[in-house]
Nucleic acid binder design. Structure first.
Length: 561
RNA sequence: GCGCCCAUAGCUCAAUCGGAUAGAGCAACGGCCUUCUAAGCCGUAGGUUGCAGGUUCGAGUCCUGCUGGGCGCGCCA
């Protein structure tokens, strides 16, 4: 419908140019927006106001000229000028209703498009090191990252979900030392406990499993415990696999899966780190100082230069990061999105600078980042501190168990990543029926119920009758719903373009709200078969879009509640 | 001190990337279940959009400067 109106306006525009009423060079971006207020019709354009100045006319006068020059259309019942110079379009009822059959015919495909066809996109998210269970922050990353992937897929992109982690290095050594200590019966408060050890109870579980000779299978590795309390390498390998397996369970419970698990250690073993260093040195962007090797990242917008190789010879994490992203580029991903916690925001400039220094033709702003702000968890009005070392914190699994997967996912994805959020456990648990996810799911279930009831009455949906009766959907609340449904495809586009899955959650709230209002005001099960079938079509279209939307968030669409 | 993010009703958040009278939920108060699911609907009340300027037909939205909060600023990851 928007396209139709845009076309009408464009025709009028060309006509006025031909008449000389407008400068020939004017080529405005014609915008047609859904009207917020029913009194303003269905769609509105601000074209006259934008062109008033170049045309040297008052906006309202120009609007009048535009309308006069506009061809008539069967779909438009009237056009009005309002306010400072808006042109408001009133769409006739049966033309507006046709979208219902676009929806019912397309089914699960409605709203999906092929904009990204042939483009490989990689989304890296969660990327938690295997030193403890996943917490709420990881949950936010998982919910946002996975929805982003679903959105990109809905826009036709070929998406790879990737998880990057470190299975070697100082943190993993601490993990192994902690497990070894537990095996020997040393507890976190004993003097012999390792200084930077992980104090959580799960370390005891790892120790027990190791000594039992258990075999653990994670999505990307399988390890059988050596049960030898002195073999640090074996302990390390087992602990990593054990924790990766735990994370897999968390992610599965959350409905999130990955295509690729990428190890930092692979970058070393395959020589990619060395190759990256070599290339950076040859590029002339490095220098030695204080016995360390530096990269002049200030040449690329960083506020200070960064150390690549430490005085003692090892590399900083920065270097494998650059090597890793070079590898992503070489794998052919035209778009890479890194979903991370905002506490890592300083790596953005650094990684991009490192990639520019490689001088391999990687675009300046590559890769993209979606940084989510911190999640504060409260219980009994008190903030719950997230400290992995202290071992007292809320895991993602706790939340899923207490609040449910649908509610947890919906909650974590329904706010802009740029905003901090508070996860009130008491609220989520005790008043779980107030969670917005149920409001949306309820709309879906209600339509299912109506449909079942109709069938019970022997009033099965008659498509032909419905098609012929769309003009009967003239209640303002029905029209609002129809227009809302019509805006679903552009919502899917915009949410993906802007990397903002919360726009989907917001849309579903509005759709549900308009549905519930309509449901209470307008009865579907009426004697008049024409009206009844038109309204059934509306309900079924709502259900379809609701299901498509919930799916993009990884949330189920129950048939009954 | 420097950088990134944020600030809208008592609380949690919206506002269709600059549009018309800033909207929902929770909490408060009052209505609606013999009729398609009351996890719902309708109504009342609640606002100087942190402060001060600027840009223009038009600003919660863009720019500048403040104030307040979060996160970073390591040869840790």
């Amino acid at each position: 419908m928007k396209e139709t109106i845009t076309l009408l306006l464009n025709t009028a525009l060309e006509a006025l140019k031909a008449e000389g009423a407008l400068p020939v060079g004017t080529q405005p971006d014609i915008r047609v927006d859904a009207a917020r207020d029913r009194a303003h019709g269905d769609y509105a354009s601000n074209l006259a106001m934008m062109l008033a100045k170049p045309a040297g006319m008052k906006p309202r006068d120009l609007a009048e000229r535009l309308i006069a020059a506009m061809p008539t259309s069967d779909a438009i019942s009237s056009v009005e000028i309002a306010g400072p110079g808006f042109i408001n379009f009133f769409v006739n009822t049966s033309a507006a209703g046709e979208v219902l059959f676009d929806i019912l015919d397309a089914g699960d495909e409605f709203g999906r498009n092929r904009d990204g066809a042939g483009q490989k996109v990689q989304v890296e998210f969660v990327s938690a090191n295997p030193t403890g269970p996943l917490h709420v922050g990881h949950g936010r990353g998982a919910a946002v990252g996975d929805s982003l992937c679903r959105l990109l897929e809905a826009n036709g992109f070929e998406v790879t979900r990737e998880f990057y982690y470190n299975d070697a290095g100082a943190q993993i050594d601490n993990l192994a030392l902690s497990v070894a200590a537990r095996i020997k019966g040393i507890e976190p408060n004993d003097p012999a406990w390792p200084a930077d050890g992980y104090r959580g109870e799960y370390i005891q579980d790892v120790a027990r499993a190791y000594m039992q000779g258990d075999t653990v299978t994670a999505d990307d590795r399988q390890v059988t415990a050596a049960a030898n309390p002195d073999d640090m390498d074996a302990i390390r390998a087992f602990a990593v696999a054990w924790l990766r397996h735990e994370q897999d369970l968390d992610l599965k419970a959350f409905g999130v899966g990955f295509d690729v698990f990428f190890l930092e250690s692979d970058l070393y073993e395959s020589g990619k780190v060395e190759a990256t260093v070599k290339r950076l040195i040859e590029g002339g962007h490095t220098y030695e100082s204080d016995g360390a090797l530096w990269l002049r990242t200030t040449d690329f917008g960083d506020d200070k230069d960064r150390v690549m190789r430490k005085r003692e010879g090892g590399y900083t994490y920065f270097l494998p990061d650059v090597a890793y992203h070079l590898d992503k580029w070489q794998r052919g991903f035209t778009t890479v999105i890194n979903e991370q916690g905002a506490d890592h925001h300083s790596t953005v400039t650094r990684v991009r600078a490192g990639l520019q220094a490689l001088d391999t033709g990687i675009p300046k702003g590559w890769p993209d980042y979606v940084l989510h702000q911190m999640v504060m968890v409260t219980r009994s009005g008190q903030e719950v501190k997230l400290s992995k070392r202290a071992g007292s914190y809320v895991t993602l699994r706790d939340l899923i168990d207490e609040v449910g997967r649908d509610a947890t996912r919906y909650f974590l994805v329904s706010r802009a990543a740029t905003s901090q959020m508070t996860f009130d456990i008491d609220l989520a648990r005790s008043q779980s029926s107030d969670n917005p996810v149920y409001y949306a799911q309820y709309a879906h279930a209600r339509v299912c119920s109506v449909e079942a009831k109709a069938a019970e009455n022997g009033w099965a949906f008659d498509e032909n009758l419905a098609r012929a009766s769309l003009h009967l959907l003239e209640d303002a609340r029905e029209r609002d719903l129809i227009n809302r449904l019509g805006s679903w495809p552009e919502t899917v586009r915009r949410a993906a373009d802007q990397r903002e899955p919360q726009q989907i959650a917001l849309y579903l709230q509005e759709l549900a709200s308009e549905f519930h209002t309509c449901y209470n005001a307008v009865k579907v099960m009426v004697e008049d078969a024409n009206l009844r079938n038109a309204r059934l079509a509306l309900g079924m279209a709502v259900r379809q879009v609701m299901r498509n939307g919930l799916d993009l968030l990884g949330v189920s669409a129950p048939r009954e509640m």
